[in-house]
Each structure stands twice: as C-alpha cells, then as structure tokens.
C-alpha cells in the first residue's frame, strides 16, 4: 500500500487554478524529486500535503488516514509528515535545542528530559550537537536549515516534505544540507522534495516528477526522465537548467 496517496487534487487561488488534478502515490522509503518551472504548482502541492493550504477537490491520504480540514485531523497528519521550508522558519526566540524540543513537549507532551535527549540526538544526527545552545541568529543558513531538519525529525515523522530547502542558501552551504538529506534517504526515510538541484535529484531520488502548468507532465525513474525526456516542455526545462 502507498504511504502517501494524492488523488485528483485541485487547488485554486481566486480564479487561478494552480493544481489541475494531481495524482501521485508514494511508497514507503521512496525519495521523490518534484521539478518544474516556478508557478508550475510544485510548492503548492507540498503545502497541500501538509495541510498548509486546503484543497478544493480530490483527496490526500497519508498512511491510510484522510486529510480533513479540522484541527484534529490536521494535527494527526502533521504528526506523520514533517515539513522543511525554504526560509528555515526557526523560532528566533529559542535556542537550537529549544527549537527541537518545543513541539515534542507541547504537541506530544513528551517529558522535558526525554525531549532534551531526543533534541541532542537529532542535532547530533545533523552534525550540530555542539550548537545546542546557539540561537538561530548565531547560525549560518546551512546550520539553520539543519536545525530545522532536526526539529522535524524529532517528531518522528514517517515522511518529510522539503520545499526548496537549499534555495535560500549561499552556494557553499548547499552541500552540507544535501549531505544530511542524502543520509536520511539512505536510512530509508520517505522524502518528497521540491528542488532545483538536478544533480542531487539524479543521484539520490527513486523517482522524478516533472510538473507543468498545474499537472504532472512526466513521471519516472531519474535515469529515464533526465536521459530521455518525452515531452518538449521537459526537454526545454532540462535544456534550460543544463545551461545553468
């Protein structure tokens, strides 16, 4: 059975239909890259799966549970699916450790000592054990994003959604974040990521989704999609991005 089932999902902002019937099934342990031009709806799709945007039509199910727009269902879904943002969105008033502990304590009611142990473990996992007491504004962009990953992992999700997590980073900081993601993939974490890192998508992902004008235009294994694009839109997109 698929872990995440996205069925005929539609979403409009005003009169602008951003998602025009999306179908994707994600199996446990799969790493999926979503590529496409800006405005193709790829970020919106991720945000819908996390319930940050409500869908107009269709259905989303995670591990068999339906996504419904009430607080109880949303909370249940978000406990299963973590999300990493382009802008990190760390809580600036809390230390790195505090960021990782907060939601464990208030959402899962984990006792403080356990939450702290988990925070140390997760920060260690992303290579930042020594930054436990640092505030976000004392960390580089790459370090902040790794704390954000640790924060999501501490909730022990069964899948992670990554929304252009390296786009706001200086080029020299991209590698350290991707290294963490690569490790997660190797450990069997299910990942759904919107990305512009084509090389990373080719090396790490099990499938690539090319979105165009609110639809899944092509989908397949990376070696097929990148080596042998079927549609002129994907050819143009890849040619365009190869130049960069």
């Amino acid at each position: 059975m698929s872990l995440i089932e996205v069925t005929e999902v539609r979403k409009s902002f005003g009169s602008n239909e951003v998602l025009k019937g999306i179908n994707i099934d994600v199996d446990p342990g799969e790493v999926i890259a979503i590529i496409g031009k800006s405005g193709s709806g790829k970020s919106t799709l991720l945000r819908c799966i996390n319930g940050l945007e409500l869908i107009d039509d269709g259905s989303i199910a995670v591990a068999g549970a339906q996504l419904l727009p009430d607080e109880l269902h949303l909370k249940a879904l978000r406990l299963k699916v973590g999300m990493i943002f382009q802008q990190f969105n760390l809580f600036p008033h809390l230390t790195a450790g505090g960021n990782v502990m907060l939601s464990q304590m208030v959402v899962k009611k984990t006792p403080k000592a356990d939450a702290e142990a988990m925070a140390r473990k997760m920060l260690d996992r992303v290579g930042l054990a020594h930054k436990y007491d640092a505030f976000p504004d004392e960390l580089s962009g790459g370090q902040q994003q790794r704390v954000a990953i640790a924060r999501a992992l501490a909730m022990q999700p069964i899948a992670l959604l990554c929304d252009e997590i390296t786009s706001a980073l200086d080029p020299e900081l991209v590698a350290e974040v991707l290294a963490v993601v690569r490790e997660l993939a190797a450990e069997g974490m299910t990942l759904l990521m919107v990305t512009h890192e084509m090389k990373f998508a080719r090396d790490v992902c099990s499938r690539v989704v090319f979105m165009h004008q609110g639809r899944v235009h092509e989908i397949g294994k990376p070696e097929e999609v990148f080596a042998n694009p079927q549609t002129p839109e994907l050819k143009q997109f890849l040619g365009f991005s190869a130049e960069h």
């Binding site: 940050l52 909370k75 999300m83 943002f85 802008q87 809580f91 907060l102 959402v107 924060r151």
Partner: peptide
C-alpha cells in the same frame, strides 16, 4: 511576526492556542 512562523509551528502539529502561546 513572520508568516513562516505560523506555518512552521503548524507543520509541527501545534494547534492555534499552542502556536500563540509558545511561538
């Protein structure tokens, strides 16, 4: 307070009151 703070805390499963209180 930046919109991303609401989204990040929501994505971690916090409800409205918890978002307000802690973030």
């Amino acid at each position: 307070v930046f919109k991303g703070q609401w989204e990040a805390s929501a994505s971690l499963g916090m409800g409205y009151v918890q978002q307000m209180r802690y973030v």
